[in-house]
Design a binder for these strands. Structure first.
Lengths: 142, 142
DNA sequence: TTAATAAAAGATAAATTTGTCCTTTATTAA
DNA sequence: TTAATAAAGGACAAATTTATCTTTTATTAA
C-alpha cells in the first residue's frame, strides 16, 4: 500500500474538516469519524498529532472542534510527510541501505520519475481542491 | 513504503538464487539470508511460499536448496503480486471502498499513470536482468 | 462560578507484520 | 540401509500498526 491507514484517515479527515471550515463550522471528532467512516479514537490521535504539528487547528470545549486556518495552503504532501514520513519518496524500493543516487540499486533509475510524479501530484493537490470536489458531490469520504 | 519487508526480501533472495542457478548451483537458506542480509527463518517462509507458487524451485536434502528454472521468465511483478498481492496497483490511495474507474476518488486520475508506470517497470524487469547487473558488481543485495 | 462540552492524554488491547526456534519430511551420498 | 543434509511446517514471540476505553485538561455558555 502506498499510504498507511493512518495517513488515509488523516487526509480524508482533513478534507472533511476543511469542508466544515468552509461553512465556518468546526468539526468534532465523533462527527468526523462518522463522516469518513474511521475509528473515532484512533482518528482523534492522528488529528491531535496534526494539530500539534500546526497542520490543523483545534479548540476544546463547547463549540470547539477541529478546523483549518487556510485549506489553500494545506497540501496532501504535508499531511503524508507528517503521518508517514518521507520514506515513500526516498527509501530504497528494495530495502537496500546503501542505495543512493551515487550507488543506485538496479531499480533506482526507474523509480525516480515515479517518485517525482508522486511528489508532484501530492505536492500540488491542496485540501482546498478536494473540498471543492467534495462539495460538488463528486465523491464520498468513506 | 511501496513494498513490504517480506517482498523486499523475496526479490533480493530471488536475485541471489537466480545468480547461483546461473552458475548451476543451488542456494541454501543460510547462505541466502547471509548474502542478502535478512532474517534466515523468516526468509525461509517467504521462499517456501514462492516455491509452492512455482515461482521458485527447491529440493530437500544434501546438495539441495533453492533454484530457478528460468530467470528470464521470472519478473518482479510476479514476485510482488505473490507476496504483497495486487493492492499496490489497484487499491484506492485514500482507502475509499467505492473508488473505481466508474466512481473515482479525487486522486484516481492522477494515480492511474503512476500505477501504470509501476506495472510497466516491475512487469518488464526480469530477475535475469538484475542478476546480470549483480554479476557485473553494479550493486549489492544488502 | 458552575456545569457541560470537547480535545488531549494515557493506558490497554487487537490485529498484522516481522522474526525465531524446534520438529518433521524428503533427498542424497556413502 | 543409514546418516547427514536441507527444505517444509508448526508453534511461538517481538515489533509495529491499528483500534478502544478512560481520565484529564481547557473552554464556553449560562
Amino acid at each position: 500500500m502506498i499510504l498507511s491507514k493512518s495517513c488515509e484517515y488523516a487526509i480524508r479527515a482533513a478534507v472533511y474538516i476543511a469542508y466544515k471550515s468552509h461553512k465556518n463550522e468546526k468539526a468534532g471528532i465523533a462527527e468526523i469519524a462518522d463522516a469518513i467512516g474511521s475509528p473515532m479514537h484512533f482518528t482523534a490521535k492522528i488529528l491531535q498529532d496534526l494539530s500539534r504539528r500546526r497542520l490543523l487547528s483545534s479548540v476544546k470545549g463547547p463549540h470547539g472542534g477541529f478546523y483549518v486556518e487556510d485549506d489553500r495552503s494545506l497540501y496532501l504532501l504535508d499531511i503524508i510527510r507528517a503521518v508517514d514520513g518521507n520514506d515513500l519518496f526516498s527509501a530504497c524500493v528494495l530495502g537496500l541501505k546503501q542505495c543512493s543516487d551515487a550507488q543506485p540499486c538496479p531499480l533506482h533509475e526507474q523509480m525516480l520519475p515515479i517518485r517525482n510524479q508522486l511528489l508532484i501530484e501530492f505536492g500540488k493537490k491542496s485540501v482546498n481542491e478536494l473540498v471543492r470536489d467534495f462539495e460538488q458531490k463528486k465523491y464520498f469520504l468513506k
